[in-house]
């Protein structure tokens, strides 16, 4: 913002949260490097200063999957390590504070879907991310809770990392390994294909971890708030939202699908300063001043 002839004028406003893209790329490269190093280390090589943890050791959902066995038997589901518990706890703490920021800022699978979606956006322009009829879409979005229940039940009853055979995240970081599961590859392929038409299809319709973290939107400390008094009601926030949440109709976003990407905020697409913000209170400074 600059002051010109006594008026505050914004001379440059990014339309996207560029820093999020940087953080996403960082986590993708980090997880990729660690998982490649894991394969190298198993064959006697590897980069000494870099962690050689397996993808299961650095996946927070592993902690969720093994929770039942840990509480009832005191052991971890095979392939899952103690580090997954730590990441699970960090994911929950972040979610309580700022919602599912792990999904929007750190998850490599979400990042890859967004990268593929950039192609879809260029091809389909305004039609992109609006192919699924709204009524059907509203129903499908609860599918991921079914996936979550199914994964937890099967893991508890079989005592194995059941979901590994279908997990696109695991498949993505096992592409070069003999451990890659065909089921996971198929799901990953379908997910990336759908990403050409829909933003984050896996996150919206099937991700069990996203389902769990999404619940934090109901009670998170810092939420997305819209200031009605300064809102121009241009709908830009709703158009920009990758999860198709109608931000412009809400004063507080409590939608279970929000991923805290901040793309709807006044820092990004919203043209009015301090109108859509990530904050603790519904009352933004503009309304508080009244």
């Amino acid at each position: 913002m600059v002051t010109l002839f006594g008026k505050r004028i914004r001379i440059f406003r990014p339309r996207s949260i560029w820093l999020r893209k940087v953080v996403q790329a960082f986590f993708f490269v980090l997880v990729l490097a660690i998982t490649i190093n894991h394969t190298l280390a198993e064959s006697g090589g590897g980069i000494p200063l870099l962690s050689s943890a397996s993808v299961h050791a650095i996946c927070p959902f592993g902690g969720v999957e093994t929770l039942y066995q840990f509480l009832t038997v005191g052991t971890l589901v095979q392939k899952v390590h103690q580090s997954a518990f730590t990441l699970m706890a960090i994911g929950f703490a972040l979610a309580i504070l700022v919602g599912p920021a792990f999904c929007g800022w750190a998850c490599p699978l979400g990042t890859v879907q967004e990268w593929v979606s950039e192609i879809g956006r260029k091809i389909f322009r305004r039609r992109f991310n609006h192919f699924v009829p709204e009524k059907l879409d509203n129903v499908l979005r609860y599918l991921r809770y079914g996936v979550l229940a199914w994964v937890l039940y099967m893991t508890a009853t079989t005592g194995t990392l059941f979901f590994d055979a279908y997990d696109p995240y695991s498949a993505m970081f096992h592409l070069w390994s003999s451990e890659v599961a065909i089921g996971g590859l198929v799901v990953l392929g379908i997910t990336l294909l759908l990403s050409l038409f829909v933003e984050r299809p896996w996150c919206k319709y099937a991700c069990p971890y996203g389902a769990l973290l999404g619940l934090s939107n109901l009670f998170r400390i810092f939420g997305i708030h819209r200031n009605e008094s300064t809102c121009k009601a241009d709908g830009a926030c709703s158009i920009m939202c990758p999860m198709n949440i109608k931000v412009d109709t809400k004063t507080v976003v409590r939608d279970h699908q929000c991923i805290s990407c901040m793309e709807c905020t006044s820092e990004a697409i919203c043209p009015v300063a301090k109108t859509v913000m990530l904050s603790t209170s519904r009352k933004t400074p503009a309304t508080s001043a009244k």
Partner: peptide, 9 residues
């Protein structure tokens, strides 16, 4: 209290 993208990152 507000959080900016830099703070969230």
């Amino acid at each position: 209290m507000n959080i900016t993208s830099k703070t969230l990152a």
